[in-house]
Computed example of a mutant assay.
Amino acid sequence: MTTSSLLWIPVTLAAAAAQTGRNATQRRLTETIGTVGATQVRFLYGFPFALLALGLVRLVLGEPVPAPEGMFMPFVLGGATAQILATALMLAAMRERSFSVVTAYMKTEPVQVALFGVAILGDPLSPGVALGIGVATAGVVLMSLKPGARLGAAGLRPTVYGIASGAFFALAAIGFRGAILALPEGSFVMRSTATLAWALGTQTVLLLVWLGAFDRKALVASFRAWRPSLGAGFLGALASQFWFVGFSLTTAANVRTLALVEVLMAQAVSHRLLSQATTRREVLGMALILAGVGLLLLAQH
Results as ranks from 00 to 15, higher is better:
residue 135 V to G: 02
residue 146 K to S: 14
residue 140 V to Y: 01
residue 73 M to V: 11
residue 118 V to L: 15
residue 141 V to R: 07
residue 95 R to F: 02
residue 146 K to E: 15
residue 64 P to M: 07
residue 143 M to E: 00
residue 119 A to L: 15
residue 111 V to L: 14
residue 77 L to R: 04
residue 109 E to I: 13
residue 71 M to I: 15
residue 80 A to Y: 11
residue 63 E to A: 03
residue 54 L to F: 05
residue 97 R to E: 09
residue 27 R to G: 08
residue 148 G to T: 07
residue 121 L to Y: 14
residue 147 P to W: 10
residue 125 L to N: 00
residue 144 S to R: 04
residue 75 F to K: 07
residue 64 P to L: 02
residue 73 M to L: 11
residue 128 G to N: 05
residue 85 L to I: 15
residue 88 A to E: 10
residue 130 A to T: 00
residue 48 P to S: 11
residue 23 N to R: 12
residue 105 Y to L: 08
residue 124 P to F: 05
residue 98 S to H: 13
residue 78 G to L: 01
residue 134 G to V: 07
residue 87 T to Y: 00
residue 151 L to R: 09
residue 146 K to L: 12
residue 42 R to P: 00
residue 45 Y to N: 12
residue 104 A to M: 03
residue 144 S to K: 03
residue 148 G to L: 08
residue 150 R to K: 13
residue 37 G to S: 04
residue 27 R to M: 06
residue 78 G to W: 05
residue 153 A to W: 09
residue 64 P to W: 02
residue 111 V to Y: 01
residue 85 L to E: 07
residue 131 L to V: 09
residue 151 L to D: 09
residue 116 F to Y: 15
residue 96 E to K: 10
residue 141 V to F: 03
residue 124 P to A: 02
residue 101 V to I: 05
residue 76 V to M: 10
residue 79 G to P: 03
residue 105 Y to R: 05
residue 53 A to M: 11
residue 107 K to S: 10
residue 140 V to L: 01
residue 91 L to P: 06
residue 77 L to I: 14
residue 105 Y to Q: 04
residue 32 T to P: 08
residue 101 V to P: 01
residue 43 F to M: 14
residue 108 T to M: 11
residue 93 A to D: 01
residue 40 Q to C: 14
residue 70 G to L: 04
residue 148 G to F: 14
residue 30 T to S: 04
residue 58 R to W: 12
residue 143 M to Q: 01
residue 54 L to R: 03
residue 47 F to D: 13
residue 64 P to E: 09
residue 49 F to D: 08
residue 92 A to F: 08
residue 145 L to K: 14
residue 120 I to K: 10
residue 58 R to D: 07
residue 138 A to Q: 03
residue 128 G to H: 04
residue 128 G to V: 04
residue 32 T to D: 12
residue 52 L to G: 12
residue 64 P to F: 02
residue 70 G to V: 06
residue 22 R to L: 11
residue 82 A to R: 03
residue 98 S to T: 15
residue 82 A to P: 06
residue 23 N to I: 09
residue 122 G to N: 10
residue 123 D to W: 09
residue 34 G to F: 00
residue 141 V to S: 01
residue 28 R to S: 13
residue 139 G to E: 00
residue 55 G to S: 02
residue 126 S to E: 11
residue 88 A to W: 15
residue 28 R to K: 13
residue 24 A to C: 00
residue 60 V to G: 01
residue 35 T to Q: 05
residue 142 L to P: 01
residue 62 G to I: 09
residue 33 I to Y: 12
residue 114 A to G: 02
residue 121 L to M: 13
residue 72 F to R: 04
residue 131 L to K: 00
residue 149 A to C: 11
residue 105 Y to N: 03
residue 56 L to V: 10
residue 25 T to S: 13
residue 57 V to L: 00
residue 62 G to H: 06
residue 145 L to A: 13
residue 106 M to W: 02
residue 25 T to F: 12
residue 139 G to C: 02
residue 34 G to I: 02
residue 27 R to A: 06
residue 56 L to P: 03
residue 66 P to W: 04
residue 94 M to D: 08
residue 28 R to G: 09
residue 124 P to G: 05
residue 108 T to H: 05
residue 147 P to E: 11
residue 70 G to K: 08
residue 65 V to E: 06
residue 48 P to T: 10
residue 60 V to A: 05
residue 101 V to F: 02
residue 68 P to G: 07
residue 100 S to F: 10
residue 117 G to E: 08
residue 83 Q to W: 08
residue 61 L to K: 06
residue 136 A to F: 00
residue 75 F to P: 04
residue 113 V to L: 13
residue 45 Y to V: 13
residue 144 S to T: 06
residue 84 I to Y: 04
